[in-house]
Amino acid sequence: MELKNEKLVRMVNISKYFGEVAALRKENFEVGYNEVVGLIGDNGAGKSTLIKILTGVHPPGKGRIYFQGEEITYHSVERARELGIETVYQERALGEQQALWKNIFMGREMTTHLGFLQVKKAKKETERILKEVIGFTAAGLTPDSIVERLSGGEKQGVAIARALHFKAKLIILDEPTMGLSLSETKKVLNFVKGIKEQGKSCIFITHNIYHVYPVADRFVVLDRGRTVGEFIKKDISLEKLVNKLYLVARTGEISQN
């Protein structure tokens, strides 16, 4: 039905202020079908804010959001999920003192009609997710583990597994490789490749251009609340992109050629 040139997500004219601080200034942002977008930018550039508006955590203000060509008027976390947007937040958004299986289904528990939990089913599902989706076979990691005691990588794994488990059209990863070892970083990058192969879309936020370059199709560079550069991977080599980023860092501007 959708026009082939229509984007999966289109965010138009998004501004966001925290008090006096402008986190986003009239930002436009798009994600295509089956596209992996690398969203790059300095600390405080507004990357997380941008995606939190998309996922319904912050209200979009005066801007507009289109999903598969349709404008979303009522925006909330639930609505974003219904549309098929899944997110791994930078903050990980885990309830650390709670059991792993509860965290997997946080905010959309498996329940009967009356809202009672289907504990067994949820735990079984968690076990499957642990094995199949993230391949954690580490001894001691079970649905009943308390998240607080997991390693950083394991926590990140749980947050990613949670996002991958629910059949999403768009998966957002905010700094998924932060604080991960080399081997775990590699795992995350493989997830992203998997997302692409399954025909889904992905927004990959990172500071580390070397992580995102191999997996992304397109790069968007954000600086102080607005896009300063956009590159298609086929048009630009890694070295050139790195140079461009240095340039942004120095001048705050970028030349598109």
Partner: peptide
């Protein structure tokens, strides 16, 4: 240089905030 300007910017922000 960038970081300097940012610092300055942030300091200004904080100043007004304060």
């Amino acid at each position: 240089m960038r970081s300097l300007t940012i610092k300055k910017q942030k300091r200004e922000k904080i100043k007004t905030l304060k």
